[in-house]
Structures are given as structure tokens and as C-alpha cells.
């Protein structure tokens, strides 16, 4: 046990070597990963060096500095640029299936399983009939 902990601490050591960036910047960074760079191919604005990505990063940093909440910033982005820039689709009617179906499968599936295991029916017959047994004996006689 002790050895495990020690090993873990050693493994973790490189992580201790840095201090996290300021909270605001971290929040902005997280938002960057939710926004698509429209000039690039499927990249978010966090890792893109396109000019437009830089502009949007600046915009979001300013909004964060102005104390706006994540939800507000997302709403602003949607107003300005539409659905296309949001890597995190909105919770809206048209996205109901997207957000709803996977959890529904889990809930519905568990319910169905519980009902199924409650409802017991006869188990399968795992025995050969007499006729079958006789044919088998005949067949295997000369193996």
C-alpha cells in the first residue's frame, strides 16, 4: 500500500512542477474549445492561428473579463455567428434527439431489463428426446 502511494507520488511529480493559470484565463481557454474556427477545417479557436480565431479569442477574453457568465457568452456567440460556430450544440428543440436519445437509451434500457428479468417464463429444454437419443447412439456407435 505504502509503496503504491509512493509510486503514485513519483509519477505525479511532474504535475506538481507547474502552477495553474489564472482562473479567468482558464475559463476563457475552456470556452475557446467550444467555438469553431470558421476559417479552418474543423478546428476550435483554441489551437488555430487564423486571424479570425485570434479576433474571436480576444472577444471572448473581453467578455470573460467583463464578468459575463459562460451561458451569456454562448448566447452572444450564437446571436452573432449562429449554430455553426458552437461545438457544443444548444439545448433546443431541433437538437432534442441529439441530446435526448443517448440518455433515453440508458434509462429505457435499464427499465426494460428490470421488467424482463422480473417476468420469468419456462427455461429451455436441455435434454434430448428419446428419438433423438436413439439416432445419436446409432450415429456415434462406430466413431
Amino acid at each position: 500500500m505504502k509503496r503504491l502511494l509512493l509510486a503514485f507520488l513519483l509519477l505525479a511529480a511532474p504535475m506538481a512542477a507547474y502552477a495553474g493559470p489564472a482562473a479567468d484565463e482558464a475559463r476563457a481557454q475552456k470556452l475557446f474549445t467550444e467555438v469553431r474556427c470558421v476559417a479552418c477545417q474543423g478546428q476550435d479557436i483554441a489551437d488555430s492561428d487564423a486571424a479570425i480565431a485570434g479576433d474571436m479569442r480576444r472577444e471572448i477574453r473581453q467578455a470573460v473579463a467583463a464578468g459575463r457568465s459562460d451561458a451569456d457568452i454562448r448566447a452572444d456567440l450564437y446571436r452573432h455567428y449562429g449554430d455553426y460556430v458552437l461545438f457544443r450544440p444548444r439545448f433546443s428543440g431541433s437538437n432534442l434527439l441529439l441530446w435526448g436519445v443517448p440518455p433515453l437509451i440508458v434509462i429505457g434500457g435499464i427499465a426494460a431489463l428490470l421488467i424482463m428479468t422480473r417476468r420469468r417464463s419456462e427455461t429451455r429444454a436441455y435434454a434430448l428426446s428419446e428419438a433423438e437419443q436413439k439416432r445419436l447412439d446409432d450415429l456415434t456407435k462406430n466413431i
Binding site: Y126, A127, L128, E132, R135, L136, L139, T140
Partner: peptide
């Protein structure tokens, strides 16, 4: 084991 043997037997009978 019993169940598997029965299955194998049925497969043999079908093949025959």
C-alpha cells in the same frame, strides 16, 4: 457441460 453436449448432439443430428 450438459447443455453444450446437447447442442453439439443436435448439430450432429442436423448434419446427418
Amino acid at each position: 457441460g450438459h447443455e453444450e453436449r446437447v447442442e453439439a448432439a443436435r448439430a450432429l443430428l442436423k448434419a446427418e
